[in-house]
Design a protein around this nucleic acid. Sequence first.
DNA 1: ACATCCACTAATGTATACATTGACAAGTTA
DNA 2: TAACTTGTCAATGTATACATTAGTGGATGT
Lengths: 231, 231
Amino acid sequence: MAVTHRQTKTGKVKLSLTDKAYNELKRRILDNELPPGTQLMESELAELLDISRTPAREAMMRLEVEGLVEVRARHGMKVKPISVSDMNEIYALLTGLESTAAWQAAQIDHSKKTLDALRQTVKEMDDTLVNGDMKAWAAADEAFHRQLVEMSGNQRLIQIVHRLLDQSYRVRMMTLSLRPKPAKSNEDHADVVDAIVNKDAEEARRIHRIHREKAGDMLVGLLKKYNLTQL
Amino acid sequence: MAVTHRQTKTGKVKLSLTDKAYNELKRRILDNELPPGTQLMESELAELLDISRTPAREAMMRLEVEGLVEVRARHGMKVKPISVSDMNEIYALLTGLESTAAWQAAQIDHSKKTLDALRQTVKEMDDTLVNGDMKAWAAADEAFHRQLVEMSGNQRLIQIVHRLLDQSYRVRMMTLSLRPKPAKSNEDHADVVDAIVNKDAEEARRIHRIHREKAGDMLVGLLKKYNLTQL
DNA sequence: ACATCCACTAATGTATACATTGACAAGTTA
DNA sequence: TAACTTGTCAATGTATACATTAGTGGATGT
């Protein structure tokens, strides 16, 4: 996201120290190595990653823009916890944005390759569900949503949705074992794929909206039920 | 947006140089003092604003995140032009996001003050339309959309919509004199207000979506008709 | 014990020095 | 001429020095 990338002749991408710091910091936050509430000062982050304050500072600024950390003057950055109301905000947005994406995606001709990839992801969700491997299921589910959104071709939408998925990643992972078997979820996805293939934009939007509304309600319900107010 | 603000005892806000640079640069871009395509290097911006490279650089990074400029390595920043496909992206998003906002706003109890302010803005749109003062009408129109979105209470949604309104500001201003009289637009707004007052969330979402779809189609149509491919 | 004030200090904000690198142009070769 | 090589240098990337300021803790007085 807004990452400077300089191509070398081998096709490798040379990352600036700011990029590396950003990637590393983001990874640690998403993996919960730096749990919510963790505070880091510029100089601490710099030391942690063995760089100077400048790229450390710039990485912090990027992460703040993406909503993963908060920068309070003289307290460094703090890894933001996610509250129930955050999840409400995020799912309301994902509902509106992804259903718009489905609507746009259904108006476009897609290559067989693209459609096959989407179908393959749906199949993976079915398989992982049968195996009971919820972590793999979650990965496939996220892949489906990312693929769908990318099929809209709307770059701004893609970027915003990715950001929201990142923000809610931890919560989705932590509630995986608490949620009911997502059999209906898989059906919904298959229906959306059908609507897109049939170029029925209104139907794709409608189905996906209902799907996301259910997902959001379920998740928020879980958080309340288990009293998970700060993740 | 993501601006550090330090309160002083008098309630005044002390802005950092980065904040000032950001505000000033953004203002100049929106006012078209720095038209699309304008390039500025870090040192040029620093000199222009009589600051050092550091806050100049940070301001550029913020504006890049907001999508108003593009930073190419070794070429400084460039003020981004808006193309027809950008406007398509932006209006598809505004349609999805603002109708979500209307839907959320209609589910909330609002103070009389808030509702009166919204009605007052609708009235201003009527008045300015009668006077034929399109610039004032545009200001009222933008105010309406911002108020509506703020009434959703969804902070993330508010921030994203504001960003999109900023990105499309220039185009809206430049097409003001080309577009037909927005009488229907005012009616739509009044209908949305009614739906919100009546707590009819579905209706608010439906009306606003149609309103935005029309607005987007009209604008994109104008750009194509007058062959305005890069603004 | 408690509130208030003040000096100190640590952390950020800002400027600047230094290192790296990609763009360009002059020169070379075919 | 056109394609390719290479050296230079300007602009960014990075580190660091310096300026400013908010938070902290201790001294003071009640």
